[in-house]
């Protein structure tokens, strides 16, 4: 499987953020996007996720399921956690798992993987920011999708959780997945390629 980006350009609010951006990513590869604030890191991730339109250029996925749009093969971990405070931990995860069309028997192991298995029946309102973040990460594990788009995934995470996330990411890559992450510092992906976004 291979993700190709050709001559991408991005306009936000009438301003050109970047253009002429090309890259290719194969199965098992990770790419870290860096660049100063406003360089378009988040916009690029949202573009791959189908949430922002490409002003020019195109994104294609070779291999994989032909009929499925690119957005439906991506997991997007944005700045917000998309978890509802009045639902319990497992209700939250169960909803996203079912909504993305996966079987729900993966929920327990996904919560185990992020270290929240003891809190399944707790309403998410009781969780700290880091715990909510981990619940959000559990979504990536409970539903299989080949491309992970992570926007500053380590924010709000303490170092044991960061290590756990790094293990999850390594596992995902080993299984033939791809990761595109936006980050300011290291996020635990040693062999990741780097894409530096410079203002156009």
């Amino acid at each position: 499987m291979r993700l190709n980006a050709e001559e991408l350009a991005c306009n936000r609010g009438g301003r050109e953020v970047f253009r002429g951006l090309s890259f290719a990513l194969s199965s098992g590869e990770a790419m870290v996007i860096s660049g100063r604030n406003g360089a378009g890191k988040s916009s690029l991730l949202r573009m791959i996720a189908g949430l922002v339109r490409c002003a020019a250029g195109q994104l294609t996925l070779d291999g994989g399921e032909r009929d499925t749009p690119l957005a439906e093969q991506c997991h997007y971990l944005g700045h917000q956690d998309a978890m509802k405070p009045s639902l319990t931990v497992s209700e939250n995860l169960q909803f996203w798992t079912e909504f993305f069309g996966a079987r729900t028997h993966t929920i327990e192991s996904a919560l185990q993987a992020v270290g929240l298995a003891a809190l399944t029946d707790l309403p998410a309102a009781y969780l700290s920011a880091g715990q909510r973040r981990r619940l959000s990460i559990a979504r990536l594990v409970s539903v299989q999708r080949p491309i992970w788009l992570l926007d500053e995934p380590t924010s709000a995470l303490d170092s044991p959780s960061q290590k756990r996330l790094a293990e999850l990411m390594q596992g995902h890559l080993a299984g033939g997945g791809m990761i595109v992450a936006a980050a300011h510092g290291p996020i635990g992906l040693e062999r990741a390629r780097e894409l530096k976004l410079d203002p156009a």
Binding site: A118, L119, P123, Y126
Partner: peptide, 10 residues
């Protein structure tokens, strides 16, 4: 107690 539970786990 639930708050304590979340905190203890942390």
């Amino acid at each position: 107690m639930r708050l304590m539970q979340a905190q203890e786990l942390a």
